[in-house]
């Protein structure tokens, strides 16, 4: 799992590439928290365009990021979600809470 962030005018975009499972999640969460704490963005976007696999560990990661953004009074959205992670998110009920866009939409 590789994570890169880009901050511009209040908006922090974080691209997650590779496979997001329990093995990768702890480090990924630390990096996301570091980036949020550094920039204190109004808006955070998780970009899943390069995400090759995700299991339920990803649900917890999104929820934690959501809570962290609430603490800094910002918003979270997730974009470019490929089909496999999308099925996991669909099953999770998280779509009611967070704005999530599929890849190509």
């Amino acid at each position: 799992m590789n994570i890169s962030g880009d901050y511009r005018e209040g908006k922090l975009t974080i691209v997650l590439s590779g496979e997001l499972d329990h093995h990768a999640a702890r480090r990924a969460m630390r990096e996301i928290e570091t980036q949020i704490d550094t920039y204190l963005p109004r808006e955070c976007v998780l970009d899943f365009i390069k995400l090759q696999f995700m299991d339920s560990s990803g649900i917890a990661l999104i929820l934690k990021t959501y809570k962290r953004m609430k603490e800094v009074e910002g918003n979270l959205s997730v974009k470019n979600v490929p089909p496999q992670p999308m099925r996991v998110l669909d099953a999770s009920g998280i779509l009611r809470l967070i704005k999530i866009r599929e890849a190509g939409k």
Binding site: A25, D55, A60, A91, S92
Partner: peptide, 22 residues
């Protein structure tokens, strides 16, 4: 059961429901 977890906020309690539906 969905959302049941003993794993704290690192886990979401969705593992078994996902296996069941997939």
């Amino acid at each position: 059961e969905p959302l049941y977890t003993t794993g704290g906020d690192d886990r979401s309690g969705m593992g078994f429901p996902i296996m069941e539906s997939f």
